[in-house]
C-alpha cells in the first residue's frame, strides 16, 4: 500500500465517523430535507466530471465527461434548489 493510498484510506475512515456523528439526532419532519441536502452534496462528483472532461483525451472520454458534467450539474444545482424550497416552509412559521 502506498503512502497516498494509506492517506486516502485514513480520510475515508474518519469521514465515516463524521458522517455518523453529524446527524445523530434528527426529527422526522427533517428526514426528507436532510436526504435532499445530502443528495445535493454528492453532486460534488461535478468536480470529478469537470476534471475528466477537461484533462481527458479523445472522443470517448470527451463524451463521457460531457454527459457526466451535465448530469452532475443537474444533481448539485437541482438538489440545492429543491432542498431550499422544502425548507421555506420552516421559515417564518415559528416567528409570526
Amino acid at each position: 500500500m502506498t503512502e497516498t493510498t494509506l492517506g486516502l484510506f485514513t480520510i475515508f475512515v474518519l469521514s465515516v465517523f463524521v458522517g455518523f456523528e453529524v446527524i445523530s439526532k434528527v426529527s422526522s419532519v427533517l428526514h426528507t430535507p436532510l436526504m435532499s441536502g445530502a443528495n445535493a452534496i454528492h453532486g460534488v462528483i461535478l468536480i470529478g466530471s469537470i476534471v475528466i472532461l477537461g484533462t481527458g483525451h479523445g472522443a470517448v472520454q470527451g463524451v463521457l465527461g460531457f454527459v457526466a458534467v451535465v448530469l452532475a450539474t443537474v444533481n448539485a444545482v437541482g438538489g440545492f434548489v429543491v432542498t431550499d424550497r422544502m425548507l421555506e416552509m420552516f421559515k417564518g412559521r415559528a416567528r409570526k
Partner: peptide
C-alpha cells in the same frame, strides 16, 4: 463528501 453522504 461522498463518504459523508454515504455514512449519514
Amino acid at each position: 463528501a461522498g463518504t459523508l453522504v454515504g455514512a449519514s
